[in-house]
Design a protein around this nucleic acid. Structure first.
Length: 415
RNA sequence: GUGGGUAUGGCGCAGGUGGUUAGCGCGCCAGAUUGUGGCUCUGGAGGCCGUGGGUUCGAGUCCCACUAUCCACCCCA
């Protein structure tokens, strides 16, 4: 048997309904925030992600689905949404539109990594990107979209955590300071941290080892290393959020895994899982070949959202009841039922009929299983006198209805 | 990439120390006097016990490998 590819899954009716509700809320909220939808291709040139996401990131180094096409070009299934939007922004000269450009997307995303709770190889990301502004107000607006969305979803216990990584200058200054600090304590840290020291010193900050935590507590904070402008920017973001009534905590240990982030980075966390993560990326557009452009955005994992919602509100139940089941008896009745059902469907009534040629009894069982509100059986006698007994399934009550009037009667009852 | 748990009909599970035709619940299909469902009863279909090797007279049951899945690390949505 050919089975599912690792880290992918089929989504059935009940869950699809939940997804559609979620997506509708996303679209509605974006509408009110003046954010337009963009649909970029699933495949892009590998180079886009290498330059955009960062050559040294885990995503690029070991998690991309990359292949070569018949023209010997290296293509990659998108591992995140921002780079593609940046590419589109540049390629279509969107900076010539009224700025800022505000875009959102809901799209499948791929990362070839080990699966676990809330992590798949194909997952779906909702993302918002706001390009064309360096102002802290843009950071706050982006954050407010995410906050509004999570609130609309009714998720409890989400927490907004923020940090500022500063501009590249601040960052390299901090890297140096941190490296010095860790270097002095290197022999006291765990093996993983020693590795991180070379690869990405910032990562040492969120080590879970108790022993390391103790040492890290005394580490210098990024925030102390910010220059005046970055400091002011971050302060303003906070001021605006406060003005907006959005609660947050500052966590100098937040380090995001994508290289393109500058200044503000943030996460919405629930049950220890990051539902939503994002930040400002002022150098990405330039890095991808555009003019220097300030930008900020975030991504939100739909599977994680669904997971949390299920946990908090219970399993999603299926609701696909039919309005009416058209049962039939005999050859003529069977024929008539087919046409009659289509007629009802065209009138907007959710109708179903027997297409397996089963006994009346079996048909009724079926009607019950699909949750039909009404049922009827059409056979020789009904065809002869032109009426039918319409039965309300829940009560068993029957009413006589002229066949030709069924669409109207049912439309009335099922409205 | 690393560590641990799991892998038996559509779903959820049983199957002490290896031994004749692998069970149960739910679901599915069909009947219970001839054209009407939900309850009950009866019957039926459906599994080469994840895959491939090995040990053995004989393995779902023991050993190895692989794959998938779950959980955790790394990292992230």
């Amino acid at each position: 048997m050919i089975q599912l590819v690792k880290g992918t899954k089929d989504i059935f009716a009940a869950e699809v309904n939940a997804w559609q509700e979620i997506e509708k809320k996303m679209r509605d909220i974006c509408q009110t925030f003046g954010i337009g939808e963009i649909r970029t291709p699933i495949i892009e040139f590998t180079e886009l992600f290498v330059r955009g996401v960062g050559e040294t990131t885990d995503i690029v180094q070991k998690e991309m689905y990359t292949f070569t096409d018949d023209g010997d070009r290296s293509l990659t299934l998108r591992p995140e949404g921002t780079a593609g939007v940046a590419r589109a922004y540049i390629e279509h000269g969107m900076h010539n539109q009224a700025q800022p450009t505000k875009l959102y997307y809901i799209s499948p995303t791929f990362r070839c990594e080990n699966t676990q709770a809330g992590r798949q190889r194909q997952f779906h990301q909702f993302g918002v990107e706001m390009l064309g502004s360096y102002s802290p107000a843009q950071d706050a607006e982006a954050i407010s979209v995410a906050a509004a969305l999570l609130e609309e979803m009714g998720i409890e216990g989400v927490e907004l955590r923020m940090n500022s990584l500063g501009c590249p200058e601040c960052r390299s200054r901090y890297n140096k300071t941190l490296r010095e600090f860790i270097g002095q304590n290197l022999d006291k840290l765990c093996p993983t941290c020693k590795e991180r020291f070379d690869k990405n010193p910032l990562r040492v900050l969120d080590c879970k080892e108790e022993h390391c935590k103790g040492i890290i507590e005394n580490a210098p904070s990024v925030l102390e290393c910010l220059d005046g402008e970055c400091r002011e920017h971050f302060q303003k973001v906070q001021d605006i959020l406060t003005q907006m009534g959005i609660a947050f905590t500052i966590d100098p240990k937040i380090v995001r895994g994508l290289d393109y982030y500058t200044r503000t980075v943030f996460e919405f966390v629930s049950d220890g899982l990051t539902v939503c993560g994002g930040g400002r990326y002022d150098n990405l557009i330039e890095e991808c070949g555009g003019k220097p452009t300030g930008a900020v955005g975030f991504g939100l994992g739909i599977e994680r959202l669904v997971m949390i919602l299920e946990k908090q509100k219970g399993e999603i139940s299926e609701t696909s009841a039919r309005d009416v089941f058209v049962g039939s008896m005999g050859e003529k009745g069977f024929l008539k039922a087919q046409g009659l059902t289509l007629g009802l469907r065209k009138a907007g009534i959710s109708a179903d009929c027997d297409t397996v040629e089963r006994s009346v009894k079996a048909q009724m069982k079926y009607a019950n299983k699909i949750g039909a509100k009404y049922s009827l059986v059409i056979g020789d006698s009904e065809l002869e006198n032109g009426t039918v007994e319409l039965k309300e399934m829940e009560t068993g009550e029957k009413t006589t209805v002229v066949i030709a009037e069924l669409p109207f009667v049912l439309a009335e009852k099922c409205r």
